[in-house]
Design a binder for these strands. Sequence first.
DNA 1: CCTGATCTATAGGAAATTCCTTCGGACAAC
DNA 2: GTTGTCCGAAGGAATTTCCTATAGATCAGG
Lengths: 308, 308
Amino acid sequence: MLSLHQLRCFLATLEHGSFTAAAGALGYAQPSISEQVRLLEQQLDTTLFRRVGRGLVPTEAARALQPHASAALAAVAEAGRAVASVRELLTGTVRFGLFRTARFYLTADLVADVLQRHPGVRVELVGQNSAEVLEHLRKGRLEAAVIALPVEDENMVVTPVLRDELVYVSADPARLHTRITPADLAAAQLVLPDASWRETDTTRRQLAQAVQRTGHPLRPRIEVEDTETALEIAARGLADTVTWRGVLHGLGDRLPAGLGWAPLRPAMYETFAVVHREGELSPASRVVVDLVTARMRDLDRAMRARTA
Amino acid sequence: MLSLHQLRCFLATLEHGSFTAAAGALGYAQPSISEQVRLLEQQLDTTLFRRVGRGLVPTEAARALQPHASAALAAVAEAGRAVASVRELLTGTVRFGLFRTARFYLTADLVADVLQRHPGVRVELVGQNSAEVLEHLRKGRLEAAVIALPVEDENMVVTPVLRDELVYVSADPARLHTRITPADLAAAQLVLPDASWRETDTTRRQLAQAVQRTGHPLRPRIEVEDTETALEIAARGLADTVTWRGVLHGLGDRLPAGLGWAPLRPAMYETFAVVHREGELSPASRVVVDLVTARMRDLDRAMRARTA
DNA sequence: CCTGATCTATAGGAAATTCCTTCGGACAAC
DNA sequence: GTTGTCCGAAGGAATTTCCTATAGATCAGG
C-alpha cells in the first residue's frame, strides 16, 4: 500500500535530482531511498524516473504524481497542526456539564474567563439537571461537570466545592418571622421548580423526605420548570417557594421585588461538587474544572462569611 | 512518523464507532486497529478516543483531525488516479466508436496520428452504425465516438464537427444533368447500403421520409451492407445509389470508374458529432477526441470551400 | 445478582518491512 | 586510462506490523 514515506522519498528525489542527494537531505542512506522509490513505482505500476547514465530523469508520471504527493504531505502536516492547536487550547470546543441553576452561581463569568484566556475556543455548557448531567458523564458524552451530590459512582472523582442552604421564600413577611419547620412546609401553599425532574432531583427528594417525617406528603400546589418562574409566582403572593441562598445571592437586584426569605429548621443543605471520570482529563476540561472549582469555592467562602 | 495506515484506521474507527467494527470494515483483527490508533495518539501526543465502558467516544482532537486525515487519503487516492491516467496514455488501449462510413473520412490517418503521438497505446476503432455505437456509449462499453446526429440523450456531450451532404450517384450521365428530387428517388432503381441497420440508420430514415412525402415508399431494388459494394454495383450500371459527398471525397481515385454525382433538391444533410458521456474523459480518449475533432473540422472546412 | 455477549487492552510470536553496510557496474570528466 | 560519482543488488539487523489467544470491563436481560 502506498505510504507517506514513499511519497516523501519521491518528492525529495524529484527535488534534488538524485537518490544520493535526496538521501542526504532526508538523512538516510542512498539504497533506502532507492528502494522506497522502487516500491512506489511498483505499487503505481509505472516508471517515475528513467535511469539514464548515472542520473535520473523524471517521467511524465512523476510530474503527474508530484502535486498530489505534495498535497498528501501537506494535509498530514496540517493534521498535526490542527491537533496541536486543540491540544494547546487555541481552537476547539470545551464541553462542560452544569446543574440547571448553576447559571445563578457562575455561568456568565465562567464563560468570560474561558474566552479571555483561550480566545479561539468554543464553549458549550450543557445540562438540565444534575441527574441528567451525571448520565452524560457516565456515557462519556461529557468529561466533567459540576452537579449536586450525592454521586454514587466508584469511577468518578468528586470534589465538593460549595455547600448551599435551602431557604423558604415568600412575599408575605408574616410567614418569614419564624424559622420554617417541615410541618410548616407541609401546610404551606408551595410552588416548586424542576417539574420534569421531580423524581430524580436531589433537592426535591430531600424536601420530600423531611416533610414525609411529619406524616404528610409533599404536594406542591404549583410546579414549574425553572426557578425564576417559581420566584415570580411567589413574588405575586400566589404561593411560597424554597430555593438556595446562592440563587438569591446570584440574582441580586434581579430578584423579583417584595420577596423575603427565612431559614429552614432543621437546616437543609445541598453540596455541589466538580465531578469527572477517573483518569486523565483533557487540557480543555482541566482549565474549566480549575476555573469552576476556584469560583465556586470563592462563592462558598463569601456565603459562609455572610452567615457568620 | 505519522502514517497513512494510521489515518485510515483512525477514520474507520471514527466512522464505525468501535475498533472492532473498524477492523471488520478494513479486514484486520481488532488489536491491529487498536494498536494503530494508539500509535497515532502517541505520535500526536493527544487522546483521540476516550475509552468509556466498552465503547469509544471521539474527543475534540479527533474532530479536529478528521477533515485533514480525509484530505490526506483523498490526495493519495487522487495521486494514484493521476498516475494511472498517465500510464493509460503510455500503455493503455484506446477504444473509440465510429459510424461505419467514417473510414472514408479519417480512419487510417487517425490511427497513424495516435500511434505517432503515443507509441505505447493500442487503438481499437469499433462500430458498425451510428445507432449501434450510441448504444455502446450508453452502456459504457465505449467512452467516446463520432456518430451521426441526432443524439437524444441528456447525459451525452455532443460536439458537431462536420456537416455532409447526401448526393445522388449514377453511372449514367443522363440522369445526373438535373437536380434530383424526391420523386426522382421514388422512381429510380436504387442500391442502398446498411441493409442490417435500415430500421435505425439516420440517413435511411431521412431518405425514407423525403420520398414518402411524394406518396411513394422508399423501396430500394438492391440492399447491401457496405457503401463500397453499393458504389460498385452503381458503377456497373445496375442501379443508382446515394451517398455522402465526403465519401466520394475520401475515396478519391479509389472511386469506381464511370460514376458521377448530382446534388439532391431539396438538399439533405447529415451532421456528424463527437459524442461522449458527461464527466471526465480518460486521457487516452481525450487524445483521440481532440484528434478526431480537429480532423473532421478540417475536412468540413475543405468540403465547404469546394462547394463555394 | 448472575450470565452471556461484546468490546478494549495486553502478551507473545510470526512475518514483513525498513534501513543499514558493502560491493559491483555504468558513466562522465579529466 | 583513471578517478569520482551515482545507481542497483545483496545480505543482515532492527523495527514494525499483524495475527491469535486471552484477560478485564461493561452492559443487557433473565
